[in-house]
């Protein structure tokens, strides 16, 4: 497979996944603020902080309100990570590999883009923001389903899954982090019913609430963190994402599990092993937020290694023209 093509498939899937997760970010915050006790102010600043685009936001919008933050994350073409920008980039990547992906995949990306573009240019009332965010998730799922059902599960598909799951691992860690930034009205509220409501809202926005209940039965902060970080079977859990990413990486290079042939496999293998052979205690002894922050850094280094190993245009050494004896 052409390196350029692999790169476009990888990024196509990262952008679709990113758009879905931005919808989840907004959703978790909407859910959290809806449940706030009367008299407390809505907190939108923390959401911008979790995306890592804080500077770009304050530079252009100043104060974080529900309206400005939703505009920034959803419809701002100048924010390279907004849902609108993600779909534009996903579509451009899909367009450049139309011959590799299936027609059904292309048409889904194109439809998805048209839906987001229409919403972004029309503007959304608070009533239909919820419906729109549900639409974004559903369209992302549809794309994923179409990909699984219509594209051969060969090299291209593995690059697709790799992109999607590396992105998802990063975003799940950030969803978990929202709770860190989201201050409780008072310290005394920790562990109160209100705290529990917030944790369930968070699980819900990761589509994890029901699966969580099946495993743990009741909400406790430690169990929520255990589930979203260490579960090996829930598809939005970080460890699950790393296991499947690693499977794809090995399927692409042909090397065996438990060994590595390149830097991407080495870094990802180490990161995955850390979760395989650690418990929550090991992970968060220095603080959950600190763990997530470090994890995001390590994951970026995996992404860099994937780029260097497979996607970067490398020189092929040649003796161009004339050098060969005739």
């Amino acid at each position: 497979m052409l390196s350029r093509v692999a790169s476009s498939i990888y990024w196509l899937n990262r952008y679709i996944e990113r758009a879905e997760n931005y919808a989840r970010f907004i959703e978790v915050n909407l859910n959290l603020t809806l449940d706030l006790p009367r008299g407390t102010t809505e907190q939108w600043e923390p959401l911008v902080a979790t995306t890592g685009d804080h500077e770009s936001f304050t530079g252009r919008y100043g104060k974080a309100t529900k309206e400005t933050v939703i505009q920034f994350l959803l419809a701002d073409a100048e924010n390279a990570n907004s849902i609108l920008s993600c779909l534009l980039a996903a579509r451009e990547n899909a367009r450049s590999v139309r011959e590799v992906i299936s027609t059904d995949m292309w048409e889904q990306v194109n439809r998805f883009y048209l839906i987001v573009r229409a919403a972004a240019s029309k503007g959304l009332s608070s009533q239909n923001v919820h419906a729109f965010l549900a639409d974004v998730k559903a369209n992302s799922h549809l794309f994923l389903g179409i990909t699984d059902a219509t594209m051969s599960h060969g090299e291209g598909w593995h690059f697709a899954r790799l992109g999607r799951l590396l992105e998802r691992a990063d975003k799940t860690s950030r969803i978990l982090d929202v709770k860190y930034f989201m201050l409780l009205p008072t310290v005394a509220e920790v562990g109160t019913p209100f705290d529990i409501i917030q944790w369930s809202a968070l699980l819900k926005s990761a589509s994890a609430l029901e699966m969580y209940y099946k495993r743990f039965g009741r909400i406790s902060p430690d169990d929520v963190a255990t589930f979203l970080i260490l579960d090996s079977t829930f598809p939005r859990a970080i460890r699950y994402c790393l296991i499947k990413s690693e499977d794809s990486l090995h399927a692409i290079s042909g090397s065996e599990h438990g060994s590595y042939q390149n830097l991407a496999e080495k870094r990802l293998g180490r990161l995955r092993a850390e979760l395989d052979f650690g418990d929550l205690e090991d992970c968060v002894s220095g603080g959950l937020h600190e763990f997530l922050d470090r994890f995001q850094g390590e994951l970026n280094r995996v992404g860099d290694a994937v780029f260097d190993t497979f996607l970067a245009p490398r020189p092929i050494h040649s003796t161009i023209t004339g050098a060969e004896a005739q």
Binding site: R4, V5, R314, I316, S318
Partner: peptide
């Protein structure tokens, strides 16, 4: 079912044309 290439995907090595792939 053929590859769509751009010029930067191709390189001439020892008189033959090759495309740059992940492998």
């Amino acid at each position: 079912g053929v590859e769509l290439v751009e010029a930067s995907d191709l390189v001439v090595v020892d008189g033959s044309v090759h495309m740059r792939t992940t492998k």
